[in-house]
Design a protein around this nucleic acid. Sequence first.
DNA 1: TTGTATGCGTTATCAC
DNA 2: GTGATAACGCATACAA
Lengths: 367, 367
Amino acid sequence: MVVTLRDVARAAGVSPATASRALSAPDLVAPARREHVQQVARELGYRPNRAARELITGRTGNLCLVVPDLENPFFAAVAKGVQARARALGFALLVADAEEDPRLESELVGHLGAQVDGVILCSPRMTDVELDRLGRDVLDDDVPLLLVNRLHAGLPSVVIDNADGIRQAVTHLYALGHRRIGYAGGPVGSWSDAQRRRGLEHASHGLRSIDVVDLGHFPPLFGGGVAAGDLVAASGVTAVLAHNDLLALGILSRLRARGVRVPEDVSVVGYDDIPAATLVSPTLTTVTVPLARLGRAAVDLLIEAGSVPTATESALTSAERARHTAPATALGSDRENAGPPSVLIGVELVVRASTGVASAQSSAAGG
Amino acid sequence: MVVTLRDVARAAGVSPATASRALSAPDLVAPARREHVQQVARELGYRPNRAARELITGRTGNLCLVVPDLENPFFAAVAKGVQARARALGFALLVADAEEDPRLESELVGHLGAQVDGVILCSPRMTDVELDRLGRDVLDDDVPLLLVNRLHAGLPSVVIDNADGIRQAVTHLYALGHRRIGYAGGPVGSWSDAQRRRGLEHASHGLRSIDVVDLGHFPPLFGGGVAAGDLVAASGVTAVLAHNDLLALGILSRLRARGVRVPEDVSVVGYDDIPAATLVSPTLTTVTVPLARLGRAAVDLLIEAGSVPTATESALTSAERARHTAPATALGSDRENAGPPSVLIGVELVVRASTGVASAQSSAAGG
DNA sequence: TTGTATGCGTTATCAC
DNA sequence: GTGATAACGCATACAA
């Protein structure tokens, strides 16, 4: 049978109120009684009923993560970090896969938002208008919403340092002698792609006689890279920067199929450093994004910015929290800024085998 | 402010009981009133409070999935299928990553099992004893537990047809002229690895002058394959069967690094057909496992076997369910068998570029 | 068919 | 510091 708090109270010879306090507000009860009640609860195998607690406190002990695609290694890594951090703080995690459909994303946030203490949303392509609506109408006021890799007025977020990653990549290619560099972008409407394009423009401004070729927008997947590969070959660039690793891997594959050698003829740089980047040959030079840390930072910020009380059960020590949170940089934390805080996640170029010195001939333009 | 059922009742001019019935047991209320109440509820933006409902019905509307590693593409694919199916049936999904730690798996099942209507567990390496304990002591009697890719007395499960996949692979290699075939196994204690070894033995019994070389047990990851690759080269086999794709990819990588050509010198076959199998060069011949379907079947079986009532909100039509469930084969469904049902997921060898005709010389034994 | 009344298990509000 | 008691929002037994 199921053991209720009343059972514990009766067995311990105290009132239900005291039993409740002994377990969830220990400071309020005399040490002797407290220990006794806890002991009895343990012996009886008491497990608090979450529904009853939620009904009165309004808190669920659950967080929610919405991603476009769980099978995409980028989001899988984020999910892993979010899940780990949520659990460490005593939260369970509801995960929803939006199947790359922004409309479904909104719906999921609406449905799941009603039964959690906070929502983390990875939605690269949702419109700003829709995002506004989400924050305003869809969610209860006390359910904070946090964005991953996207800034939006009024919402806290955790973002990758897109511009700096691009800068590092461009600098690397320039140092190798590349002067004509292609950029294979992500989807139209992708916030991070816009950031990266801006970073690219900015970085190239500082370099002499560099020529940046915009190859267009592609689905940020392997298949998109296959299409992009042909444009790379046709464009006469000696190096290409891809919006992300999956795209870069597609480019790699297509170039190989066409007999274009990497890195001898063309150098390729990715972004994200997903596990597959080291599985291929040549291994992929890319920008490492600490995705697990990003996930952890997202949970931490959601808790703080939304002033979500941590589930008491297994909260970390403050030292542990500090250790995790330290590496990230707070944005807009100056006191003038009244908006919600954002955290910037630093990135680092990792040079592997897909980049090399620029070839003398004008790359693989012809057939 | 939050709209409660009483508000709806008042606005509709009916009692709370009628309002409740109009929304969650429509048949019990007169058509006219029913429509009216539903209309009013819609206008007021009424959202039932899940905690209150759970407190009285005992059902949460949540399912739970525990996997060893969310970043592993195998489990990511399963998670995606499970999530999609759960949502279609009106359930939300709690996802937990056990970090490859069987002890943590138990703990998670215990913690999360208390707040869900059913648990799906992917636990290749948990001991049978621990599994018994889970089913007996840890979970409430009315919270069904389902196993993925593992059979266990007393528990329903969804399993891959391991033996048949191996049989198809061996047959393929034999037809290509391979007579000395290595097997790079998964971890000791892995249920599916035991199955595959058994299947291997059985399949090879039927073939003349075939020689199966057991290369040992490896972590079912890329790194494990790197180690296995050296044994492949040293063993004098002309083909190797890997426990799974990640292992196979590691072998591929190591062989390439050592100058052993695939498939000219050695053929390699994987298992699972994860996305990366087509990203590498040569592309990997492997056994396709319909992981998304597996995930869906897991949810369906959990609901049926555990007699979990589907969340009413967005249940599929029976036609839709049949369409999904049909391809899987029911095991032990004969009426003699009193145990919980299991579903067998069929698999299919997909031949790609990593397998070819056996080389004349005794493979790449030397340096 | 509908309304009234009760209780699910817990925490919060008071008195004491 | 402790105990009685009232909610929380809903579903349901029972009465009408």
